[in-house]
Design a protein around this nucleic acid. Structure first.
Lengths: 326, 326
DNA sequence: AGATGATATCGAAACGTTTCGATTCAGTTT
DNA sequence: AAACTGAATCGAAACGTTTCGATATCATCT
C-alpha cells in the first residue's frame, strides 16, 4: 500500500512536504503541491487511519451504543445521528454489547452517544472522568463531560392520561416498564400524578417490562377480570402491540369500544395496527440530531446545556369515548 | 493517559518487557509479569487502539455496510453477525452511507460484510484487489478476496408460485423489485419460469421497487382493474404491507378471499398483519452468522466456498383457495 | 576454570502520520 | 556587496505499540 513515503520518493521531496501538500497547507508552492497531489492520485494513496489517529489523537468517529439491534425502534434515531454527523466530517459506528465498549477507553472514537441501560452510571462517569465526551439518552448524569437529551416523558404520559380522562374513562390500567429504566420511571410518575388529580378514576398498575410479551400478559390479566369497559395505558407501544395480540386473538373484546388502548413511542407497528393505536409521538430523528450536535459541541469544548425532546398526542381509533358518558 | 512507557518507568523495567508481560508472553518471569500487571491495573492502563493497529495492521473490527438503518429488516441479521464475531474477539461496526466506506481503504477494519446496492461491483473489486476481504450478501462477485452468502431466492419464489398455483389461482400478479437488485432479479426469474410451467395461468408483472409505497401503488392498479379473485405475489414483504394498506383502506376487497396476497422475507410487520401474511421465510440470524464465519476464514487465509441460505414457505390466511376450484 | 547454553531483559527499529524548528535560497534592502 | 527578510523545503521527533536481535546473567557441563 502506498504511503506518504512512497509519494515523497517518487516526487523527489521530503515526507513533510508531502504531508503539507496533502493537507492543503499554503507552505508549499502551487506547482509542488500539484505534482504531489497528482502522484498521490496515481498511487491510489489513502492515508492510514491508525497512523493519523495516533498522531492527532482524533478519529472523527462517533460511537452510538445501543442495548441491541433488534426491533424497529432505533432506525430513525440512527438516521438522525448519521445525517447530522456526516455533514460535519464524522462517521458513525453503531455498537452493541459489553465488549464493544472497549472502543471508548482505547480512544478509537472521539465521543459516544449512549442509549443502553446495561451501561452503568458508574462506568459512564469513569469514562467521563478520563475525558471521554458522552451524550446520554436514557438517564440524567451530572458531569462536565456528559450531556443529556431526554424525552419529555412526563408531558407525554400526562397527555395520554388526560386524553383518557377527558373521554370519560374512569377505570384505567397502566402497564408499567422495567424499574431500571429512566423513561419508564418518568412515565409512571406522571401517571400517578395524573391519578391523584382525578380521584374519581380508578388507576390500576400492572407490571410490564417494555417487552411485547409482557404487554400480552398484562392484557390477559385485564381480559380475565373484565367487567366493564376500561382503558389501558401501555407505557410503550411494544407492550401495546402485545396487548393487541391478546385482545384480538384471546378475547372478543373490541379495541376502541370495549377496551381502549393507548401507547407511547409511535413505533411503526403501531401506525400499522388496526384500529390505529393512539400513542405519544416524538421525532426520533430530531432526537438523534440534537444528541449529535451536543456531542460535537462538547468535543469542540463549547458549552452545552441539556435539552428535552417534546412529544405530542396522536389520537387513534384504539381509544374511543367511555360508554358511561355517551 | 497511562501508556506502556509509564508502566515501564514505574516498574523499573524496559518498555519491551512491559509489552511482553501485557501480552502474556512466557519470556518474562512470573514475578516480573505479576508486578507489571499490578502496576498496569493501578494506572488503569488501556492499550491505545491506534498504536496497536498501526503496528499490527489489524484492528479486530469488522464493518457491515448497509444501505440505511431504517426498517426493521436488519435487526436479526446484525444480531447474528454480532453473536458470531464477539465470540471470536472481533467487534462489529455498522456502517451506512457512502462516506463511511473510507474505513475500508483506510485500513480501519479487518474485513467487510456488504448488503448495500449502492456499493458498485467495481468499487468492491477495487478493494478486493488491494487485499481487503469482503463477504457480499446481495450479489455474485468472483474474486479470491470476496465470498458470498446468498439467499435461495429462486427456491423461495418457486415455492410461493407453486403454492398459489396449487390452490387453483390462475390470475397472478407479480409485483417486482428494483432492477438493480440481485435478489429482485433472481425472484423475478423464478416467477417467470414458474409461469412458463403453468401456461393456463395468467401472470401479470407490475413494477415495484421493494418500497412500501410501490406495493400500495401496485395494489391500487390491481384494485382498479379488479374483475374476479386474483392472487398477488409481492416480491418482498415491505410491498405486501403496502398492498395491505391499499386493499383494506381503499377497497372493500377482503384479503384471503377476494384478493390473495403472498410476500417474501417474513418481516415482523408481516407476522403481525391481520390476516397473517403468507410469505417466504429464512433465518436472518443464520445469514449473518455464516457471513461472519466466512469473513473470518478469509482473514485467516483459509479457503471458503460460497454458501446459500435456505428458505421455507409460511402459509397464512392472506392466501386462500381460488373460488373457481371450490 | 573456561566454555556452553538457557533464560530474562533490554535497546532500537518499525508501523505512517503530523508538526516544530532548522536550513536553504532567492529576492530585497541598505 | 553585505546583510537581512521571507518563502519553500527539509530533518527529526513524536504519537504508543510490537518484535527482532543483542546483551547480560547465571547455572551447567566438560
Amino acid at each position: 500500500m502506498a504511503s506518504i513515503k512512497d509519494i515523497a520518493k517518487k516526487a523527489g521531496v521530503s515526507i513533510s512536504t508531502v504531508s503539507y501538500a496533502l493537507n492543503g497547507s499554503d507552505k508549499v508552492t502551487k506547482e509542488t503541491a500539484a505534482k504531489i497531489l497528482k502522484i498521490a492520485e496515481e498511487l491510489h494513496y489513502v492515508p492510514h487511519a491508525a497512523a493519523r489517529l495516533l498522531k492527532k489523537q482524533q478519529s472523527n468517529l462517533i460511537g452510538i451504543f445501543l442495548t441491541d439491534f433488534s426491533g424497529n425502534f432505533y432506525g430513525d434515531l440512527l438516521q438522525g445521528v448519521k445525517e447530522y454527523l456526516s455533514g460535519k466530517g464524522y462517521d458513525l459506528l453503531v455498537c452493541s454489547g459489553e465488549k464493544s465498549r472497549r472502543l471508548i477507553p482505547e480512544r478509537m472514537i472521539d465521543g459516544a452517544i449512549v442509549l443502553d441501560v446495561t451501561f452503568s452510571d458508574k462506568e459512564l462517569l469513569q469514562y467521563a472522568e478520563k475525558g471521554h465526551k458522552t451524550v446520554v439518552l436514557d438517564r440524567e448524569l451530572l458531569h462536565p463531560n456528559v450531556s443529556q437529551v431526554l424525552l419529555d416523558n412526563k408531558a407525554g404520559a400526562t397527555l395520554a392520561m388526560e386524553y383518557l380522562l377527558e373521554l370519560g374513562h374512569d377505570k384505567i390500567y397502566a402497564v408499567t416498564g422495567p424499574s431500571g429504566s429512566y423513561d419508564a420511571n418518568q412515565r409512571l410518575r406522571a401517571v400517578r400524578q395524573a391519578a391523584e388529580r382525578a380521584p374519581h378514576a380508578q388507576v390500576i398498575e400492572l407490571q410490564g417490562d417494555f417487552g411485547r410479551a409482557s404487554g400480552e400478559a398484562a392484557a390477559r390479566v385485564i381480559a380475565d377480570e373484565y367487567e366493564r369497559p376500561a382503558a389501558v395505558f401501555c407505557l410503550n407501544d411494544e407492550m401495546a402491540v402485545g396487548a393487541y395480540r391478546c385482545f384480538t386473538s384471546y378475547t372478543d373484546l373490541k379495541i376502541g369500544e370495549h377496551i381502549h388502548l393507548i401507547g407511547f413511542d409511535n413505533i411503526e407497528l403501531a401506525q400499522f395496527a388496526i384500529p390505529r393505536l393512539a400513542t405519544i409521538d416524538y421525532s426520533m430523528r430530531k432526537w438523534g440530531a440534537i444528541a449529535s450536535e451536543q456531542l460535537l459541541k462538547m468535543i469542540a469544548a463549547q458549552p452545552v446545556e441539556a435539552e428535552r425532546i417534546y412529544v405530542s398526542l396522536i389520537k387513534g381509533e384504539s381509544v374511543g369515548p367511555s360508554p358511561s358518558v355517551k
